[in-house]
Each structure stands twice: as C-alpha cells, then as structure tokens.
C-alpha cells in the first residue's frame, strides 16, 4: 500500500475511534441550531408536522383510507425519507463547511463525516417526534415488530456513513453534485412509496423494488408502523449498505490526499 493510502487509512481509523470527538461536534452543531432561534430545530419539526397533516389529508381523501392511518404512515415515512435525502445532499458540503478546521488542526478529517452522520440521526430523532405524537394521539398498540427498528436503523446508519464518506470527497471536488443529487432526490421522493403505498398502485410496484432507497426506507419505517419488513427489504437494504460503505471507504482512501486542494 502506498504511503498516502496508509495515511488515509490511519485517518479513517483514528476518526472512527475518536467517538468522543465527533459526538461532541455533533451535539455542538445541534446546540448552535438551538442557540439561533427560540424554537431551534423545532421549526423543522413544525414544518414537518404541517407537511404531514396536509399530505395525509390529501392522500386520505384521494384513496379513501382513514386519515389516522395516513397520518401515521406519512409521519413515519417522511421522518426517515427526510433524513436519508438530507444525508445525501448535505454530505456534499461536509468538508467545505469544515474547511478552516481541516486546514488548521492535525485531526482526522473523517471526524467530520461521523459528526455529520450522527447529526443526521439527532435530526431524525426530532422529526420522529411528529410520529410519536401521532402514535400516542391515535393510541397505536405496541407490537414486537417495532423492535426491528433498531437493526433497521443500524443498517441505515452504515449506509449513510458510506455515502457520506464518498460524497464528502466528491462533493468538494465537483460542486454541482449537490444540486444534481437534490434534483434526483426530488423525483425519487415522488417515485418512492412515501405518501402512496406499494399495493395502491400495482403497476408501479416494480418501481419501488428497484429503488435502493425504498428498501432502506422500509427497514425503519415498517417497524415504526408495527409491521415487519420483508426479506427482500432486509436483503436489499443490506446490499445497499455494504456497497455504500465499500464505495465510501474506497473513495476516501483514494481521494483523501487531495481534499485540502479542493476546499
């Protein structure tokens, strides 16, 4: 292995090991969001709640499904989807945002990737509060399937870490990846069953099956709704997570060396 690659490995290992460091940075990011406005990230929660209510109302009048069912379905789906899609678009600017830090201190740059992914998880917790409130309001019964949320989230976390590693590097080099990915995600938002169900549109179910993000979505959303994800979902999501991680590590190792030139 070449020296630069060894250094990139060391960066990756040291960054991952410094849990205290990235946990501190992530919580600090969140605190500074709270510091700026009275409601802080709860503005985001409020926006989410309004969006969910409107979408649930619209889709229940369209499909004739009970509104409580639609609220829960959309609230769970939106929390997960928003986390996934933000983790893709915002990962492009991880290193750009941390530029002064990266060029000033001899700290592993992968620290900022972990900081970012953990930050996404903290944001997700905020967004899920809409679902939790709805679940309590509609007195959703507890189901053992809900425990599957934990392994689902773990796989999602691995997938997010992978693509964040890759995009943190490519996003600094090519600045139009961020707008490009948000354009694609805008279309995927409609094409992924988030406010519609796979079984509602039988002609479109293949569209969900070939959509890698659908499987990632499903392994966390289905447990929230008290359902078990299908075997296909687990396999699909695991493949996505492994490929994403492999791509992330490979990109990081090969691109780490030049990151200072691009930020």
């Amino acid at each position: 292995m070449k020296l630069v690659e060894k250094q990139a490995w060391a960066d990756l290992v040291l960054g991952a090991k410094n849990v205290r460091g990235w946990a501190l940075l992530a919580s600090d990011d969140l605190k500074s969001r709270y510091a700026r406005t009275v409601l802080g990230p709860f503005w985001m929660v409020l926006a989410q709640a309004m969006f969910v209510a409107a979408l649930a109302f619209w889709s229940s009048s369209l499909t004739g499904k009970e509104i409580s069912q639609q609220v829960l379905y959309v609230a769970a789906g939106m929390a997960v989807w928003a986390t996934i899609s933000t983790s893709i678009t915002d990962a492009c600017s991880i290193m750009i945002r941390a530029a002064t830090f990266v060029s000033t201190y001899r700290l592993p740059v992968s620290l900022h990737v972990h900081r970012f992914v953990l930050g996404q998880l903290l944001t997700m917790a905020h967004l899920l509060s809409v679902y939790v409130v709805a679940a309590v309001a509609f007195s959703v019964p507890f189901s053992m399937n809900m425990l599957l949320f934990v392994p689902g989230l773990a796989i999602t976390y691995v997938a997010m870490t992978g693509w964040s590693l890759a995009l943190s590097m490519y996003g600094a080099r090519y600045r139009d990846i961020a707008p490009l990915s948000s354009a694609v995600l805008g279309a995927l938002f409609i094409l992924t069953p988030i406010f519609w169900r796979k079984e509602d549109i039988s002609g479109a179910s293949w569209m969900a099956d070939i959509n890698p993000l659908f499987h990632i979505l499903q392994i966390t959303r289905a447990p929230l709704l008290g359902e078990a994800p299908t075997l296909e979902n687990w396999i699909g999501a695991s493949i996505v997570a492994l490929l994403s991680l492999a791509l992330g590590v490979f990109t990081f190792i090969s691109r780490r060396r030049d990151i200072n030139f691009w930020i």
Partner: peptide
C-alpha cells in the same frame, strides 16, 4: 466554477 463541475467533466 466550470472546473468544479461533474457535468462538465
């Protein structure tokens, strides 16, 4: 900016 465009690349 064109030098940092993936579409251009």
């Amino acid at each position: 900016g064109k030098q940092q465009s993936i579409l251009g690349q």
